[in-house]
């Protein structure tokens, strides 16, 4: 009756509300935790101590070289056709503008195809605004990650992107972007949906839109951070691993409570809950707190490289990085037999409405690095319809989280990990 024991203990028993309380303490204490900062390293030390305070002492860290991109002053002012301040968040790794800023006319496009169809003379010396309407994150985010490179290739002096979000109350959403090789690095930033639509309407009416963009930032590549590994040793096959995970770093806005504080804390809760209930599975459950996810899955790539020769021991890998709202089930990658085993396990969670198995070739963010090598894995499938309202914004605070839903998530995460780690057979590759 393990599932019921865990659900009862977390949802109604002594653990009720503890995931939320610990998450709230954590994000209130450290606030945002960007890659390469002292805040992130202090938060890692805090999680290690929090785990040891639970009498779980099998905790190690592994060093990872990470970048530090630090935002300075950012300001966009519309000069023509009228004066207006434009809310802005620079994108990760963006270069600075000169101190006086860049003043130029705006060209609005809705897609890369539209950009490519433009004469180079029409782009050269101008600011390109990518006003791509949000469809799915994976589809729309390319304008954020590649927009600066594509605009620079056509001679633009700066690029702006409509925030990658389906909804906005004038909130800009930051995020990572990468400069391609052999292109001029131009400043790049996100503006709000409202301002992107405003500029788009003016542009389509034939009005000349002129902006001044002022952005300052610094970028260093030689900082050191750490992945944190908490092992809850299995009693029969300690070398075999079932991994649960979330990332501990965040963007420099809000508190990173949703992205990915919730995923971090339900993964931290797994060994804690099992230890408190004295439930010891056959295989080892490893909780990993990934570092430097936001600037490109840097901790996950380092882990995969460091543990490549042991990867056969990973039986299953789980990650929560798309919200910890009410759990609905799992988004699973693996063979037909692996998916059927997980589907059978999920049937045990009908009482909390978390029995749905969604198939995906590449679930999660960090774990995609390992799943793509053939390891079966899953991400938390949850009622995250509003996730991208808050993603990478000042609005990502503990206020977004719900105490009961975090309890459901922690209980579900723990029970699923326990069952997989305790079965008599491995999840097949």
């Amino acid at each position: 009756d393990v599932v019921n024991e865990i659900l009862q203990y977390v949802i109604e028993g002594d653990f009720k509300g503890q995931t939320y309380d610990e998450l709230a303490k954590f994000v209130d204490k450290f606030g945002p935790r960007p890659s390469g900062t002292e805040s992130l390293e202090n938060s890692i030390d805090y999680m290690i101590q929090l785990t040891r305070d639970e009498d779980i002492n099998n905790v190690v860290t592994e060093e990872v070289q990470v970048p530090l991109w630090e935002r300075g002053e950012e300001k966009i002012t519309m000069h023509e056709p009228r004066h207006k301040n434009i809310a802005v968040l620079g994108l990760g790794r963006s270069v600075s503008t000169p101190p006086e800023g860049i003043t130029a006319e705006v060209v609005v496009v809705k897609s890369f195809d539209e950009l490519e169809s433009q004469e180079e003379n029409n782009i050269k010396g101008k600011i390109v605004l990518f006003n791509a309407i949000f469809t799915k994150y994976g589809e729309t985010t390319v304008y954020r990650t590649q927009g600066a490179t594509r605009a620079a290739q056509k001679g633009a002096v700066a690029s702006l992107v409509r925030s990658v979000a389906p909804f906005s109350i004038n909130s800009p959403h930051t995020g990572a972007q990468n400069y391609g090789e052999n292109v001029t690095k131009i400043p790049t930033a996100a503006i709000t949906i409202e301002d992107a639509d405003l500029i788009n309407r003016m542009y389509e009416r034939g009005e000349k839109v002129v902006l001044n963009i002022q952005m300052q930032s610094t970028y260093e590549t030689n900082k050191v951070s750490r992945n944190t590994l908490v092992d809850y040793k299995g009693i029969q096959y300690p070398e075999k691993l079932v991994i649960v995970s979330g990332h501990i770093d965040s963007w420099d806005v809000g508190q990173g409570a949703m992205d990915d504080g919730g995923g971090l804390f339900i993964s931290w809760a797994v060994p804690v809950i099992l230890h408190r209930l004295n439930l010891r599975p056959k295989r080892t459950i490893r909780s990993i707190f990934w570092t430097a996810e936001e600037l490109g899955l840097i901790g996950a790539y380092a882990y995969e490289e460091r543990h490549r020769n042991e990867s056969d021991n990973i039986n299953f890998i789980m990650e929560s990085d798309e919200g910890t709202f009410a759990p609905l089930g799992l988004e699973v990658a693996g063979s037909q037999e692996a998916r059927c085993m997980i589907a059978e396990i999920l049937k045990l969670f009908q009482s909390i409405n978390a029995s749905t198995l969604v198939e995906s070739d590449s679930p999660g963010s960090d774990i995609a690095v390992l799943v793509n090598t053939g390891i079966p894995g899953a991400s938390l499938y949850n009622a995250n319809e509003k996730y991208f309202w808050f993603h990478h914004t000042e609005g990502d605070t503990i206020t977004v989280e719900n105490e009961h839903e975090l309890d459901l998530g922690a209980a579900f995460w723990t029970a699923v990990a326990y069952i997989i780690a305790d079965l008599s057979v491995d999840i097949p590759r």
Partner: peptide, 26 residues
């Protein structure tokens, strides 16, 4: 693309023994 799984297709994939083992956790 993510698609909800049709679990009926699993009926011939897992052994009865394994299905019973998993059910025993409830």
């Amino acid at each position: 693309a993510s698609l909800p799984k049709n679990t009926e297709e699993c009926s011939n994939v897992l052994t009865e023994e394994l299905i019973k083992e998993i059910a025993a956790y409830d």
